[in-house]
Every structure is written in structure tokens, then in C-alpha cells.
Design a protein around this nucleic acid. Structure first.
Length: 273
DNA sequence: AAGATTACCTGAAGGC
DNA sequence: TGCCTTCAGGTAATCT
């Protein structure tokens, strides 16, 4: 399940391998993952050069220029099962929906559950399409964090999953973050003191940076640009470990549903609000 | 009007 | 070599 670190990992590889390359073709097997028709997408992008890329939360924004006019952008969100990769001798299966031809180098978009989207932005203002997305979690500083979250009365877990408050965390890293911060997932930000809110932000950034260094987490089917799984899974402190002992205090980790998601926490390290 | 719930998809896993 | 149910979780749309 790609969250910020997995998207970052894919983005870095895309930039390294494709910057300066010209898009010479675009094959679309399943148009549903595109926000515009294959014809329009092709017309907007084919012939242009990939000149840059940036990431906000779980979104990747690819910059395409043609040496003069208004640049075009392709915003990519992998949602649950999206993958972008290059593999030597790879034969696309039924889950490969789009293949980019970068001057002879095939780049595949594969997505088993078809939740992901490739959004074409032609007017040169890609950020406007991200207006509903909050700042990247790694960019948020304490004063902004306090302003955005302190008054909330939803569970802190729901707030961390809300990409409009800050973007990048998903279910795995939210649980890791709250465990490290010693904060119960059902606690409400409006009831927490500033030290706890500060700690939640600090731990969120810490776990994201650590996961980036390890190439992300592979739980089901995340693979990086060259088809390799991430290495962070063995570092996970509690995600997927309900019923097992806490690595810090030996208490039995518990499971409950918060904000509609499976949630694991330590009843001793994260006392009930 | 914020917070909660459901729809979108497919595949894996478990019960019988 | 089956059938059915449940689960996985990011986001948009829909509810209360």
C-alpha cells in the first residue's frame, strides 16, 4: 500500500531514469485509470520531454515540456495497488493499464484494483489540481501543525489519515507514528496537550524518513521502480502484529477499528484517553 | 459542517 | 477441482 515513503521511492527512481527523456508513445489498455481520453492524453504528452517531477503527499507530478509552450503535467496517484516500473523483458499482464514509451524504454503502470489515477493537467498550473490536498507531512512545522489539528475533535488517527490536514500518512505509518508517540489512536487532538501534538508530528516525520531510507514498506504488493520490494517491513513496530507482544513493554498488542481501518496499538504504551 | 460511513475494485485466505 | 465470506485500505461521494 503506497504511502509517502513508497511514493517518494518511486519518484526518485523515475526522475533518475527518465529525466531528459522524450515520451514517444503511450499505450492504453484500460482507459479507466486516465482522467482524459487516451487520444487527448497522447496529444498532450507524446513528443514532450520529461523535465522534472515533484511529490506532495502521495501524489507524484510529472513535468512535461516541449521546449517553448505551456508545460503539461501528469499527476499520478497509486492509491492501493498502483505500481510504476521498468523491467527488462517484462511481458505486460492483464493488470498493466498504461505503458509509456520513453524513446525505447517501456515504463509500465500496473494496478490490480484499478483505484489509481493518472490525471492530465494541461493548463500549466498543476498545483491547482491539488488544492484539496494539505501540505506534505515532511514539510509541516509545529505552528502550522498546531493550527491545523489542535482544535479537531475526530480521533487523532482519523486526523492523521485526513490528507487535507497534512498529506502522506496512510494506515501503516499512522499506527507506527502513534505507537512511537505513545498516543492512543482514539485520543482527540482537542483533548491532547501541546507536548503530545508536537510529539505526534515529530514521530510522524521520523517514521517517514526512516521508511524512505529503507526504500518503503512492502506488505502486499508494493515494488519500487525496478520491481524490488521495500525493506521497511521488518522495522514495523506494531502494524500487522495484533496479538503479539509489544517490543517495548511485552503487553499484548490489541486491535480495533478506528476511522474504518484496522488499528493496532499497545494498551500499556498508548493509554486510553 | 465536521465527522462517520460507504462505494469503488480484485485477490488472498479461511471455513465447509 | 468449489463456493462463499471476509479482509485489505486511499480517496471521493454520500450520509447524519
Amino acid at each position: 500500500m503506497p504511502e509517502l515513503p513508497e511514493v517518494e521511492s518511486v519518484g526518485r527512481a523515475l526522475l533518475t531514469n527518465l529525466r531528459g527523456r522524450r515520451l514517444t508513445g503511450l499505450q492504453v489498455a484500460f482507459p479507466g485509470v486516465l482522467t482524459q481520453t487516451p487520444h487527448r492524453t497522447r496529444r498532450a504528452l507524446v513528443g514532450r520531454t520529461l523535465t522534472g517531477l515533484h511529490r506532495r503527499g502521495k501524489y507524484l507530478i510529472l513535468h512535461f515540456a516541449d521546449g517553448g509552450g505551456v508545460p503539461a503535467y501528469l499527476m499520478i496517484h497509486l492509491r492501493m495497488t498502483g505500481q510504476i516500473f521498468v523491467l527488462d523483458g517484462y511481458l505486460p499482464d492483464k493488470h498493466v493499464h498504461v505503458t509509456f514509451d520513453f524513446d525505447g524504454l517501456p515504463v509500465h503502470y500496473r494496478d490490480i484494483r484499478k483505484f489509481g489515477r493518472l490525471t492530465l493537467v494541461e493548463d500549466g498550473v498543476a498545483p491547482r489540481a491539488l488544492d484539496h490536498v494539505g501540505p506534505d507531512m515532511l514539510e509541516v512545522r509545529w505552528p502550522e501543525w498546531r493550527e491545523r489539528i489542535a482544535a479537531r475533535s475526530a480521533s487523532v488517527k482519523a486526523c492523521l489519515l485526513d490528507q487535507g490536514i497534512a498529506s502522506g500518512l496512510g494506515n501503516i505509518y499512522v499506527d507506527e507514528c502513534l505507537f512511537l508517540a505513545g498516543v492512543h489512536p482514539l485520543a482527540r487532538p482537542c483533548d491532547l496537550d501541546e507536548a503530545d501534538l508536537r510529539e505526534v508530528l515529530r514521530r510522524a516525520k521520523q517514521v517517514l524518513r526512516l521508511a524512505i531510507r529503507h526504500g518503503g514498506t512492502t506488505f502486499l504488493n508494493f515494488t519500487n521502480f525496478v520491481g524490488k520490494p521495500g525493506n521497511f517491513r521488518r522495522k514495523l513496530r506494531i502494524y500487522g502484529r495484533a496479538g503479539q507482544p509489544c517490543r517495548d513493554c511485552d503487553a499484548t498488542l490489541q486491535k480495533l477499528t478506528v476511522a474504518g481501518r484496522t488499528t493496532v496499538f499497545c494498551p500499556r504504551c498508548q493509554p486510553a484517553p
